[in-house]
């Protein structure tokens, strides 16, 4: 009985890694599409969203089945409940990567504007998502905590992008559509950073039993 349960937990783990890999790919494609103006990659990122949603439903079903049939306690319960929370964040990352790609496809943004901080922000966000998934895969508490701390970097970059855009508008160097699109994308990146932070927090929870340095569950 126990070995069967262990097998199912292992399966849950690999499913989560797969979903994480899909998210990484989605955000990396979306960012590359934005920075290099690659329309194909943008389409790929949008296609990945469907796949990520599908995966979320599968993992959700698996988690509920495990909860009902095995009635796990202690660490197993933590693993499953944090998995349930994590997939929600991953699914949001997928959605936002698709949203970024949709804006990219409108072609309002020219790749020659790469001097802006949005470039840096995209790379920082990719790093956060990758690190949070890696922290989950390797059960790496330190890496998870570094992701949580790194969120400030992305937040700072968001402010910088905002500053860049305000300057552009003041100097009348850009039309409104461009500035607003870029603003939206920056916000999406910022949100993705938050979701990556959440994932890292759930990783921390599943290892230590503490969420956000709060109460023990």
């Amino acid at each position: 009985m126990r070995t069967k349960f262990d097998e199912q937990l292992e399966f849950l783990n690999t499913e989560l890694i797969q979903m994480g890999a899909l998210c990484e790919n989605a955000i990396a494609s979306a960012a590359k599409a934005l920075l290099e103006g690659d329309d194909e990659l943008a389409t790929a990122a949008i296609a990945l969203e469907g796949e990520i949603d599908q995966k979320e439903r599968e993992i959700e079903t698996l988690c509920l089945k495990l909860l009902l049939q095995q009635q796990p306690v202690a660490r197993d319960l933590r693993t499953i409940s944090s998995a349930l929370k994590m997939i929600t964040d991953m699914e949001r990352i997928g959605d936002q990567a698709a949203d970024i790609s949709e804006i990219t496809r409108l072609q309002n943004i020219k790749t020659s504007d790469s001097k802006l901080h949005i470039n840096e922000m995209a790379l920082a966000t990719i790093k956060m998502v990758t690190d949070s998934v890696t922290a989950f895969v390797n059960r790496d508490l330190d890496l998870a905590r570094s992701v949580i701390v790194y969120d400030d970097v992305v937040d700072d970059l968001f402010d910088k992008v905002k500053g860049d855009l305000i300057q552009l508008i003041e100097q009348k160097k850009s039309d409104g559509e461009y500035a607003i699109d870029l603003m939206m994308i920056a916000k999406y990146f910022e949100r993705i950073g938050d979701h990556a932070t959440n994932i890292a927090e759930w990783v921390e929870f599943s290892i230590t039993g503490r969420h956000k340095e709060g109460q023990t569950v």
């Binding site: 783990n13 690999t14 797969q18 890999a21 990484e24 790919n25 390797n138």
Partner: peptide
């Protein structure tokens, strides 16, 4: 990264979609 991967799922080594 350095470590013992014996018995671990290949996804924990590399989760590239192409490899999957």
């Amino acid at each position: 990264p350095e470590g013992d991967y014996q018995g671990k799922h290949i996804l924990t080594v590399n989760r590239d979609l192409a490899l999957q």
